[in-house]
Amino acid sequence: MTTKRPRLEIEYCTQCRWLLRAGWTAQELLTTFTTELGEVALVPGTGGVFDIRVDGEVIWSREERGGFPELAALKRLVRDRIAPDRDLGHSDRR
């Protein structure tokens, strides 16, 4: 039996032209979590949205947090949700 791996979604604002930021973020997360993530989806949105969800749960919202995530902080949030025992090396240093 195989365990279903998490789905990560990055909803980005098409009006703000944040596709490249969303794509870069997806690439970085897929590079870091090569075996832990089952899927990364880019979801077009509007109205300044830049939300990151794991299995439907928002782990980062640009509107709520007042900006974009630093990559190391985002990796920690994803790790804490999908692989809490995983060492992220330099990304774990604050």
Rank of each mutant, 00 (worst) to 15 (best):
G89V: 11
E39G: 03
A22P: 04
E57N: 02
S61A: 10
T2L: 12
L42G: 00
V78W: 08
A26I: 06
A73Y: 08
G56A: 07
W60F: 10
T35R: 04
M1C: 07
F33Q: 05
D80R: 13
L19Y: 01
R79I: 13
A72W: 13
R53G: 02
R93K: 14
V58K: 00
E63D: 11
A22D: 02
L8F: 13
D92Q: 12
I10K: 04
L42Y: 01
D92W: 13
A41S: 08
R7G: 03
E63Q: 06
W18V: 03
I59S: 03
Q27I: 07
K75M: 15
R94S: 09
C16I: 01
C13S: 14
R5P: 06
C16H: 00
D80W: 12
H90F: 10
T32W: 01
A22M: 05
L71W: 07
H90M: 12
R81K: 15
T3L: 15
Y12M: 07
G45N: 02
L88F: 09
G45A: 14
I52A: 00
F50T: 02
I10V: 10
G66C: 13
Y12G: 04
D85N: 13
T31C: 09
E11Y: 07
V49F: 01
M1Y: 08
V58Y: 00
G45L: 03
L29C: 02
E11F: 06
E64K: 12
A26W: 04
I10L: 08
E70F: 12
D87H: 09
L30W: 00
D80N: 15
E36C: 08
A26G: 10
V43N: 05
I82G: 01
P6K: 08
T25S: 08
D85L: 15
L42E: 03
S61V: 12
G23H: 05
I10W: 06
P44E: 00
R94L: 14
Q27L: 08
E9G: 04
F33A: 00
E64D: 13
D51S: 08
W60T: 02
E64I: 06
F50E: 00
P44Q: 01
W60S: 01
W18C: 03
I52Y: 04
I52V: 11
L29M: 10
C16V: 04
T31I: 03
T32N: 00
D85E: 15
E36S: 07
L71Y: 11
C13K: 01
A26M: 13
C16R: 01
G38Y: 07
R94W: 13
V49E: 10
E64L: 13
L77I: 11
